[in-house]
Design a protein around this nucleic acid. Structure first.
Length: 876
RNA sequence: GGGCGAUUAGCUCAGUUGGCCAGAGCGCUGCCUUUACAUGGCAGAUGUCGGGGGUUCGAGUCCCUCAUCGCCCACCA
């Protein structure tokens, strides 16, 4: 080994993977290899709209899977010369944090309370007057509540960041953002105000899907169906003659929600349904209450469902809403926002007579469940329940985070236009979907399908507390009533604002709620209304114009398939309104992780594998290997075996590198690569580089990994064995052949480390540090193109040499002898070309196979197959 | 009911624009302590490419159809 290089090369005696994560994470943090170059012009920037994970303190397998795949792409882009803008964000705005703060501090928010700067949360448990332990919870203002939420998550986020650093993401942690930060709230409010000014945000009094336990409105995108038991109840409605008297003829309907009978506004059947055609336009009386309702026709009524005629209530389901709107029916709501039957008797019941009032009063204040029992009792008593309820199982709409079925209530809410009520706008958003590059391409159908199925605008107001406040106030009229048509807006320079504690321009706090004064909007924005602005938040829109110009529209949005309808679509909506562009060029959609039974891993099914133990046991690189083995967008079964393979690969990399470097392979100078076998190896490597590069350019990191890995194992098994002897040359005066082997080993090692760097950042960096300057992650992606490497050869020499070596091993394996066992003769019969190729590597083959005599014969016929006869030396 | 995807060795998966005997790894079997690695190495066996049609000289690959699984959507009285 050259003395001048011996100092530069420091190979540990027995390298291992332990501790590499801690060592290199700290080194990268201090050296700033992943820092974004703010001077880079837009065309050299690659910007990534990272999904901000919900801060929970724990890490899920699915997160590791998706983020690592994106990180591999980010690392490739960086090595390929891009200034990678790769921020991380924490999604700490919203319901999960709100719930945790309530439990942790024992508080709940009352937005009507004034801010108390000295507020301290109560002890969460105390001793009550009766001497028993009680859970304490105390009300506080919204601003106090938000302060407590922020206090809680700030502590959590320190731990969370440490956890995330373990998976080796090459994010620039200095760009970390929080969706509840002042900057994010200001961005969200600014965008809202712009939407308001342009008419893209509006308020409306409308039937709204309502979660009774959270007491908040929910949007179409947050719904999910759950199969629930129910029962068909067959009810008799009574026909009424022109004079208004009950005739004795009955009409039978079937319903799963008899408790809504008091909210019935009409019956409806299909216009072509001959059974009911004579009834259209007539009036019937509801059972028990005797409320007069019309019988109407509408094509949404399905003749073969139930009895073919349905009662319309305000509101039992979304079909009722459609009928109510299209048939211009009155609103007769009986369910309050608390999910109970309204206590005051409605006027249409009062108008129906004393019996109706008496009946209603037995329902008033009951929950939906008890009201149903009571109503069934009433119907049974009046003889209007026909037969017994028939149990069924049917899908019921739920808020995805809720545990009670949704009700539909009428309320004043804020909406963003999204094409759900405007065919032209819908067409525009469909077009945006076609302009986006999708990886994999078929994911575009999911977007298209969602846009096609939109049936209303985006409901963005939420009756929650920890979120971005809707930044407006309403005027209060002379009678002290809020006038929702008088909307007061803040100055943009004042953002973020909280209307419950800040005042609108031109007013002071004494005017809050006073006649002629103002009242703050109590609602907050849906978390998606803020998350849909992650490109604007991360890129510094309205805050740092220079940064924004260098990074927006972004290059990449990586995310899961389940939030195409929410995060992806909503982000496109906001960017379209605000900037008239797509928010990014391309979206990569990752697949699911399935458990071995092919079920999606999720918390609710309890089949989650926690990644932390895997990271501990096998090392981060091993887990990353498994994650990046999965094709983009492809669901993958969790397979611990694959992680073990990753660990083996990382260890192999350590050992092969150690061997190559200890053989003197430190100078990759291509001028020394003169031997045919070596040139063949380099030629093959150039092919691998080309394939891996093309794969990465198509965002197919898995293929890049696959070809690199295949090359590396062949390299270890064949090439390394073949050149072992030659590389161990005389160090004082190395022969050209020795120099050639060493230069080739160095070239291959140098290149393989770069090729693996996006996947196995820790072990590649470790090996790189033994002999190369700087960080492998700041090194250039290999090109493998002339003039750097020798050309004019193909890899036939390597292929033939590997074939012969394989045949020799085969013979030894069959004979059950050591691979060190000597071989008397090898007779190789093949074409002239392959024969010549073997001759060129003859000494290496003879050396590696311990062969005494190697004979090369030319076959008569070029088409005849290769024949390799191996005769073992029997003397010992 | 609609849309999208999947179905290849016991298991997990590759198979790029249709082209010679269909591949990898794991697992399995046998052998080898070989001075980079026993956290190893070498070798071996294993497939009606979900079923059925069709196009083609030729189909795992293209078309039709059926089945199963998964995800998403739907106005679920």
């Amino acid at each position: 080994m050259h003395a001048d290089r011996a100092e530069a090369v420091q190979v540990p005696g027995k390298p291992n993977l332990d501790g590499l994560e801690t060592k290199w994470d700290a080194a990268w943090a201090s050296s700033g290899v992943y820092a974004f170059d703010r001077t880079a012009p837009r065309e050299r920037v690659f910007s990534i709209d990272t999904p901000p994970p919900t801060v929970s303190g724990s890490l899920h397998m699915g997160s590791v899977f998706g983020y690592v795949q994106t990180d591999a792409v980010a690392r490739y882009q960086r090595m390929a010369g891009k200034a990678v803008f790769y921020p991380m964000g924490w999604d700490d705005n919203g319901l999960p944090t709100e719930r945790r703060a309530q439990n942790y501090f024992g508080v709940h928010c009352d937005p009507s309370l004034p801010y108390d700067p000295d507020f301290t949360p109560p002890a969460t448990e105390g001793i009550g007057a009766d001497g028993k332990k009680v859970k304490r919870t105390e009300a506080c203002s919204r601003r106090n509540f938000v302060e407590l939420c922020i206090e809680l998550i700030t502590a959590d986020e320190v731990v969370f960041e440490a956890t995330w650093r373990r998976i080796g993401l090459s994010v620039d942690w200095s760009l970390l953002y929080q969706t509840i930060s002042d900057e994010a709230r200001a961005t969200s409010q600014r965008a809202f105000l712009h939407n308001l000014a342009r008419g893209e945000a509006y308020q409306a009094e409308a039937p709204t899907l309502w979660d009774v336990s959270f007491a908040t409105a929910v949007a179409q995108a947050e719904l999910e169906d759950r199969e629930r038991p129910g029962a068909y109840h067959r009810l008799a409605f009574h026909r009424v003659d022109d004079a208004g008297a009950v005739t004795g003829d009955d009409v039978f309907i079937e319903t799963t929600r008899p408790e809504l009978l008091a909210a019935c506004v009409a019956l409806v059947a299909h216009p072509d349904d001959e059974r009911y055609a004579p009834l259209f336009g007539t009036t019937v009386a509801t059972p028990v209450f005797g409320v007069r309702v019309p019988v109407l026709a509408h094509e949404l009524a399905e003749p073969d469902k139930g009895s073919g005629i349905a009662m319309i209530c305000t509101f039992g389901d979304t079909t009722d809403v459609t009928w109510w709107r299209e048939l211009e029916l009155p609103t007769r709501a009986i369910i309050g926002r608390n999910g109970r039957i309204r206590t005051e008797t409605p006027e249409w019941i009062t108008a129906a007579g004393d019996d109706a009032v008496t009946a209603y009063e037995t329902l008033a204040g009951k929950t939906v469940f008890s009201a149903q029992e009571q109503m069934v009792g009433l119907l049974r008593a009046s003889g209007d329940l026909i037969g017994e309820p028939e149990p069924i199982s049917h899908p019921v709409k739920f808020y995805e985070k809720g545990d009670k079925p949704l009700e539909i209530v009428t309320s004043r809410q804020w909406y963003f236009r999204n094409g759900g009520r405007d065919p032209e706008l819908r067409e525009m958003f469909a077009k945006r979907g076609t302009q986006l590059d999708w990886v994999p391409d078929h994911m575009r159908h999911r977007y298209q399908h969602w846009v096609d199925g939109l049936n209303g605008d985006w409901l963005v107001s939420r009756q929650r507390f920890f979120g971005v406040p809707i930044p407006i106030w309403y005027g209060v009229d002379a009678d002290g009533e809020p006038d929702h048509d008088t909307v007061l807006v803040p100055d943009e320079s004042a953002l973020p604002v909280d209307p419950s504690s800040d005042t609108p321009p031109g007013y002071d706090e004494s005017q809050r709620g006073a006649p002629g004064g103002f009242v703050g909007e109590a609602d907050v924005l849906d978390t998606w209304a803020t998350s849909s602005l992650t490109p604007q938040i991360a890129c510094g829109w309205g805050r740092d114009d220079d940064l924004f110009a260098r990074t927006f529209p972004m290059d990449l949005r990586p995310q899961g398939p389940e939030i195409i309808r929410t995060w992806l679509f909503d982000t496109i909506v906001r960017a379209h309104f605000e900037h008239g562009t797509l928010p990014w060029k391309r979206a990569t959609i990752n697949g699911w992780i399935l458990d071995p039974d092919r079920k999606k891993m999720s918390k609710s099914t309890g089949n989650v594998v926690t990644p932390l133990a895997l990271l501990e046991n096998y090392g981060t690189d091993a887990v990353r290997y498994w994650s990046t083995s999965a094709r983009p967008g492809t669901d993958t079964a969790f397979d611990e075996g694959q992680i073990k393979i990753g660990r083996r690969l990382a260890i192999k990399l350590l050992n092969a590198s150690r061997f190559a470097l200890n053989s003197g392979a430190t100078d990759p100078d291509p001028a020394h690569i003169t031997e045919a076998l070596d040139r063949a190896l380099v030629t093959r490597l150039a092919g691998v580089v080309a394939t891996a590069t093309a794969a990465f350019d198509a965002f197919d990191y898995a293929r890049a990994l696959e070809v690199t890995e295949a090359f590396f194992w062949d390299f270890c098994n064949d090439y390394l064995e073949l050149v072992k002897g030659r590389a161990y040359g005389d160090d004082a005066e190395p022969a050209d052949a020795t120099l050639s082997a060493r230069a080739t080993l160095a070239t291959a090692l140098d290149t393989v480390l770069r090729l693996f760097a996006p996947f196995l950042p820790f072990v590649t960096e470790e090996v790189w540090s033994w002999w190369r300057p700087g960080s492998v992650h700041a090194a250039a992606w290999p090109t493998g193109e002339p003039p750097a490497w020798p050309t004019g050869t193909d890899d036939t020499v390597l292929a033939v040499a590997a074939d012969v070596l394989g045949a020799i091993r085969h013979a030894k394996s069959d004979a059950k002898v050591s691979m060190k066992a000597p071989v008397a003769t090898v007779v190789f019969t093949d074409s002239a070309e392959r024969g010549a190729a073997l001759e060129a590597a003859a000494s290496d083959v003879v050396d590696a196979g311990v062969v005494t005599t190697l004979v090369v014969e030319q076959s008569d016929d070029d088409a005849s197959p290769t024949a390799i006869e191996v005769t073992l030396d029997q003397t010992d």
